[in-house]
């Protein structure tokens, strides 16, 4: 019988992290990039809670994870407001279309 241990969580987190980075790099849609960011943040959350549960036994990892969720929510709120503003001026949220400011 396989017991789930710390390493399983760390591998899961590493996979989610890689997917998040992949998502950030490949997506050209601003929302797609934001989803990649959320994936990376959740990978960090899995790490934090797993470390907290299996290693330290203290509450600070859990607490950190709660704050990261809050941070992700705040970032999404202001991010989507900015995307709306961008959409209102350019009728798209494709980041490659933002090419007015360049060298």
């Amino acid at each position: 019988m396989l017991t789930i241990g710390l390493n399983h969580y760390l591998v899961l987190s590493a996979i989610v992290f890689s997917l998040g980075i992949l998502c950030m790099v490949t997506k050209r849609n601003a929302l797609g990039i934001l989803i990649g960011v959320e994936l990376v943040l959740n990978a960090a959350n899995v790490n934090l809670v797993a470390f907290s549960r299996y290693q330290t036994g203290a509450a600070d990892g859990h607490m950190f994870a709660v704050f990261v969720i809050l941070l992700a929510a705040a970032e999404a709120a202001i991010g989507i407001a900015i995307f709306m503003n961008f959409y209102n001026t350019l009728q798209t949220i494709d980041v490659d279309r933002g090419d007015e400011l360049r060298n």
Binding site: V37, V40, A44, F51, F64
Partner: peptide, 12 residues
């Protein structure tokens, strides 16, 4: 957002 997400992962 991207840099801060990576930063959080590093902190974890």
């Amino acid at each position: 957002a991207v840099t801060s997400a990576i930063s959080v992962y590093g902190a974890s």
